[in-house]
Amino acid sequence: MKNNSVIGWLLAAPLTLVLSIFLVAPIIMIAVVSFWGATEWSIYPAFLFDNYEFLLTSDVTYRVFFNTFKYALITWGFTLLIGFTVAYYLAFHIRSLTWQIALFLLCTIPFLTSNIIRMISWIPCLGRNGIANSTLISMGVIDEPLEWLLFSDFSVILAFVHLYTLFMVVPIFNTMMRIDKSLIEAATDAGATGWQTLWHVIVPLTKPGIMIGTIFVVALVMGDFITVRFMSGSQSANMGRLIQNDIALLQYPSASATAVILLVTVLLLIGTLLRFVDIRKEL
């Protein structure tokens, strides 16, 4: 068994090396720099609590913090509803495996193309003279173009849902495909209606998939800065934007302090979610 452990270590060595240099070391570096001081053009080693003090006493931080959670929660709700429905359709209503795979691939392909391009592509749809506005005007629903379609919280959340619903579809579909179909039959035979089967059999059995999808979506939305920047036209902010702003001003210590707070928040949240699911078993 000792031999086994050595081989295990050797096999895991490259992975450990990459994660040490590019994950652990950067986190430690950020934690250290968050106590440093900064002038307008440079940063210097120190042990100051100024960065944290400034952050925790400014009400901008709390507003932005709240905004970050707001985006995460709303996006989670929509991606879960849409993702569950799509996965349910693919897993239980499509009868041939070939079609299931084909339609599943159709859902996952956009994930492998550029997020930036997918964001840009909303501009002609939502803009002042965009497709949505001109359609609504020609249908007579509105007289003037809606201003809040683009560069607003609405467009930010729309883009999040557009980008990240796949992260719900894939794990939920994966879990649903492992549900023993005879359980559904048993429920039907015992007189359950379609809704009862869905709510009392399928949803409970799909929980691990929902949890994994939730972890993905929450982590991606809370850590995002580029979607918020681009889709809100720099009018809204989340924690990531705060960090990016400080970086642009070369205020690395202050950026690091915000980063530490964001990281602790995300890890606490994900850590809590992980208690409800054994990821390795569910894959």
Binding site: P26, I215, G223
Partner: peptide, 9 residues
């Protein structure tokens, strides 16, 4: 799950 900007920074 780490926010990508942290890796960058």
């Amino acid at each position: 799950v780490i926010p990508s900007i942290l890796i960058s920074l």
